[in-house]
Amino acid sequence: MDNNGVFSADLIISTLMVMIITTGMIHMASERMDIAHDFDKLSKTRQLSEKIASTINKVDASPGQGIYIKMPDTLGNSSNYMVSVNSSGVFIMIDGMKGKSAIYPIIISNGVNEGPILMYPGKTYLIQNNPGKTKIIFINEI
C-alpha cells in the first residue's frame, strides 16, 4: 500500500494468483481425502473378511478349538456392513459393495441352521470346531 492508501498492482495480481492456485489445490486435496477415506474403508473391509476366513481355517484344523471374534462397530467411516459365512467362503457387504474371502469347504452352522450365518457390527462371535466326529464349524453370537 502507498501513502494514499492505494493497493499496488503487484499485490492485487499476486493475491489473484494465490486465490486461483488455492482454489485448485483445495479441490484436489478434497478429492484426495475422499479417496483416502474410501481406501481406508475398503482395505479394512478386506482385512475383516480375511481375518474371519483365516479364523475359520484355523479352527477347522483342530477339533474342539474355538476363537472369539469381535466385529468392529465401523469399517472406515461406515457402520453399514454385514458378513455372511457359508461353506464356500466369507462374504462381506458394505455400502453396496461386496467381497469374498475363500475358506476350505466345510459345513457352517449356528447350532440350529446350516447355511449362511450372518455376522453384524459390534457383536462378538465364537467360531468353534465341532468336538464330535462330524466336521462342522459353529458360529454363535456371544
Binding site: D38, L42, T45, R46, M97, K98, G99
Partner: peptide, 8 residues
C-alpha cells in the same frame, strides 16, 4: 483400489 482389494 477396487480391483486390488477385489471388493466390487
Amino acid at each position: 483400489t477396487i480391483n486390488n482389494l477385489a471388493i466390487y
